[in-house]
Simulated scan of single mutants.
Amino acid sequence: MNHTPKRGWTEELEIAASELVDRVKELIAEGNVRRLIIRKPSGEVLIEIPLTAGVAVGGAVTIIAPILAALGAMAALLVKVKIEVIRTTEEDDTSDDEDNVQ
């Protein structure tokens, strides 16, 4: 049984702290985000949020509500933050399907 290989990439966003909670909600809803790292502009890590593949499906906001509350409190103390977004995508596995056709 072949496992689908995964590729990933990282992007860094710098946003106003007042937009932090809404932006995190948007990123989670995208579904391909595996980890979020919130940093001060100096680079110091404030919080690291690991996300599982199913978080975006059904009730993600409920599951991460305590984290969003903490982010809101942090945002009140800061002007800008950096968000490091670590994403993964699964490779297309059509070659496996073709091999199994007889």
Rank of each mutant, 00 (worst) to 15 (best):
T62Q: 15
V24H: 01
I15G: 01
T52P: 00
I67L: 06
I83F: 09
G8Q: 06
Q102T: 11
D93L: 04
D96M: 02
L68H: 07
R39D: 01
P41G: 03
R7T: 14
K82M: 05
L51Y: 03
D97T: 14
V81R: 00
K82V: 02
E30P: 07
A69T: 15
T4L: 00
L77W: 00
L46W: 05
P50E: 09
L71V: 05
D96R: 07
K25T: 07
A29T: 14
G54I: 03
E84Q: 14
V85M: 02
E91N: 08
L51Q: 03
E30W: 11
A17G: 08
K40T: 12
V61Y: 13
S95C: 05
A76E: 15
E91R: 10
T89L: 12
I64V: 15
E14Q: 14
V55G: 00
S18H: 10
A65K: 15
S95D: 13
A53W: 10
I83D: 05
I49K: 01
N100M: 11
G58Q: 14
V85I: 13
K40P: 02
E14P: 03
E98Y: 13
L77S: 10
N32W: 03
I64L: 14
L68P: 05
P50I: 09
E19A: 13
T10I: 12
L77V: 04
A56N: 12
